[in-house]
Amino acid sequence: MSRMETLTTPLLQVEHLTKRYGTRIGCADVSFDLWPGEVLGIVGESGSGKSTLLSCLAGHLTPDQGRVIFDTRDGPRDVLAMGEPERRRLSRSDWAFVHQNPRDGLRMGVTAGGNVGERLMAVGARHYGDIRAKATDWLGRVEIAAERIDDRPSAFSGGMQQRLQIARNLVTGPRLVFMDEPTGGLDVSVQARLLDLLRGLVREMGLSAIIVTHDLAVVRLLADRLMVMKGGHVVESGLTDQVLDDPQHAYTQLLVSSVLQV
């Protein structure tokens, strides 16, 4: 596929996505396009439906309505209409999911090297030396010392666990990364390092990413575009700087003015 063609097809097209929990709304009528190499931030308060939206996109929840069209290696396909084997294969190869709590995304009883190698083995790697070399390389890229490769994640600090989770997800070279509060629960200095690392990896690998967070500083640093959610609806969207510097919707104005100044 030529570069021009790549740029004319969005990587992910979301159309009228709706998820209800009984009579309550999880998220309602969400539509957007994500282009290759773009980082989209989704912000909003707790209960605004941002995590529900992310789970629906990643296939962890089944939405009630709408379509999610992903530009697979064989052309655009509706992810929700795919069979489960195909969707799980996609989530092992082309997608990655970074959980807020690294314990949800890591195998705590398996060494760091095994954690990073799992995705490689899941897509068919069967050469121990190669797997280990790649795991060592990735630990280095997320700033974990190579001699920690045979330690279990339970012996790691929170920040290291989160970096390990990122390495484990990116090792197979996914094209789309979902992140749910990747910096939640980390102290600010560790957060800053993690953000710096993420920004580097995203630019270097040309990743597309969808980042859910309530931390406006995170999206200011990482996201190209921003969606603001409230009560399950998207109330405002646009370029990050535009939305943060000139908020139009009353809720966004409130959100931006709520950030504490040091």
């Binding site: 799980r88 095994g114 799992e118 899941a122 897509v123 045979d150």
Partner: peptide
């Protein structure tokens, strides 16, 4: 490696056996 029966059944039905090699990887690493 995977304590949930629902998950291991799914792994068998979808032929997702990467995890079995994680066990062998851990053996060699240790």
């Amino acid at each position: 490696l995977e304590p949930r029966e629902t998950e291991t059944r799914k792994m068998h039905s979808l032929e997702e056996y990467g995890l079995m090699h994680v066990k062998l990887y851990e053996d060699i690493a240790r």
